[in-house]
């Protein structure tokens, strides 16, 4: 009890003693873990490099400017590839993501004991692995190039889209579904009349949101050989051509800002 009586005076405390002790232990344990982690990192760090970092940073900055504007001419094609990787990858992910989401949602799955866990496993596997790692795998399997990038983006996006979509499906209003069922509609008709119209705006919003993220991610896929502007970035970093890196950087920044603006506009128009 948070309230105790000591010598006739009631003493109020926010939590009972056991819970307070537990709270302190939690904080202590958490702090200990963080401190231990920090020490482990510190042990793996060359501190001379770190003390040197301001100098290095200033040096880097001085080499990066001015950007090599003429280099832009060679960047349009990789930038176009980057846009295609993001867009085609997103489109390719939507096709399998929709059925997976319907199989994973509690209220639409045909079997909660068999199919739902399988669908959730697909979702968590796709989500756990970053698109850059998928790209690493695909470059190794189907060779370097744009296709590896598209497939990598698609594989990563399936889980993302399916997860948000199945959550939207689970949150729908049940009344219209009941009403459509009561007319004698079949399973597919109940889904297409009772559920699809309710989740369509969410689906469009999720897709555009993921496309926006994918633009960002596809800019670095080239680092592992999966096409796009990242290839140029990798090449420039390798030969320490910092003015080119700055140029790539500015272009990527502009693309990301434009894509974010487009995505915000589209989402605004849908809702």
């Amino acid at each position: 009890m948070p309230v105790r009586e000591v010598a006739g005076v009631r003493d109020w405390q926010r939590r009972a003693r056991g819970r307070r002790l537990l709270g302190w232990l939690g904080w202590l344990g958490g702090t200990a873990v963080v401190v231990a982690s920090w020490q482990a990192i510190s042990a793996h760090t060359m501190w001379t490099f770190v003390w040197d970092a301001p100098v290095q940073g200033a040096d880097l900055a001085s080499r990066m400017f001015p950007p090599r504007w003429a280099y832009t001419a060679r960047l349009w094609r990789p930038l176009w590839d980057t846009l295609n990787i993001a867009t085609l990858g997103t489109l390719a992910a939507l096709v399998p993501a929709v059925p997976v989401a319907f199989l994973a949602a509690r209220n639409t799955t045909p079997s909660a004991t068999l199919i739902r866990p399988a669908a959730l496993l697909v979702i968590v596997s796709s989500r756990s692995i970053n698109s850059l790692i998928w790209a690493l795998l695909l470059v190794s399997v189907i060779g370097p190039g744009v296709l590896a990038g598209i497939v990598a983006i698609a594989l990563r996006s399936i889980g993302f889209v399916a997860k948000l979509l199945y959550e939207a499906i689970e949150e729908i209003d049940r009344a219209p579904v009941e009403a459509v069922t009561a007319t004698g509609a079949g399973r597919g008709q109940v889904v297409s009349y009772g559920i699809v119209p309710q989740v369509l705006p969410a689906f469009a919003g999720i897709s555009v949101f993921r496309w926006d993220i994918n633009i960002r991610e596809s800019t670095v896929l080239g680092l592992v050989g999966a096409g796009g502007i990242g290839l140029e970035l990798q090449a420039s970093v390798n030969v320490l051509a910092w003015p080119q890196v700055t140029m790539i950087f500015l272009l990527v920044l502009a693309t990301v800002i434009v894509s974010e603006w487009v995505s915000a506009r589209v989402r605004h128009a849908i809702i």
Partner: peptide, 14 residues
């Protein structure tokens, strides 16, 4: 993007 930031931090801090 995280990876771009990481490239810079690696260049600065080793």
């Amino acid at each position: 993007q995280e990876v771009i930031v990481a490239i810079f931090f690696v260049a600065m801090f080793g």
